[in-house]
């Protein structure tokens, strides 16, 4: 019963092995990458693709409609919830300056949400990457720089716009 006897079994086993390999790559990426966003980028690979492959392999190998529906439910739930949790974690990570900003090439939120990234009060027990005072000073400087930048851009936009 546990043997690999048909073509479907071979396909299922190959899918399971690919999914397991994706789990290994997730572990590697979570260990090796430098900050929260890149670690999450590596860690969500098995969360969608690997999990779907393993669910597909399981649905091929476990015959019976009830288990197939349950595996489908798990896969749909995973695809529904993975973006939500990733969004929340990355938003908090960005605002609390857990992001290596020197490694970013494009930072679209820099003038917008970075303004409230200065935290006061309840700091976590683990060390924040920057001093609160220095972060406050730097964020004020960033605000001024970007306010000027934005004003110039708005002027430019007004000039370009035919009135």
């Amino acid at each position: 019963m546990n043997d690999i006897s048909s073509v479907g079994d071979v396909v299922a086993v190959v899918l399971l092995l690919i999914g397991s390999f994706l789990c290994l790559t997730a572990g590697l990426g979570v260990l090796r990458f430098p900050d929260v966003l890149t670690r999450m980028h590596a860690g969500t690979k098995p969360q969608v693709l690997g999990f779907l492959l393993i669910m597909l392999g399981g649905a091929i190998r476990l015959q019976g409609w009830s288990t197939t529906w349950m595996l489908l439910l798990v896969a749909a739930f995973q695809m529904l919830t993975a973006p939500v949790s990733a969004h929340m974690i990355s938003r908090v990570a960005y605002r609390r300056r857990h992001v290596r900003r020197d490694l970013l090439l494009v930072d679209d939120l820099r003038s917008g949400e970075a303004r409230d990234s200065v935290y006061r009060g309840d700091e976590p027990a683990d060390a924040p990457p920057e001093e609160p005072g220095r972060a406050l000073v730097e964020s004020r400087r960033e605000d001024e720089v970007h306010r000027d930048d934005g004003a110039q851009r708005e002027d430019g936009a007004d000039r370009e716009r035919p009135s």
């Binding site: 399971l16 670690r39 098995p46 690997g50 399981g58 476990l62 798990v74 995973q78």
Partner: peptide, 21 residues
Amino acid sequence: VVATDTLLVIIAAGLAVHAAL
């Protein structure tokens, strides 16, 4: 948090692999 998330997904994948094999 990210590592716990990944670990739980890997545990679920291991359960599914066990069930399938």
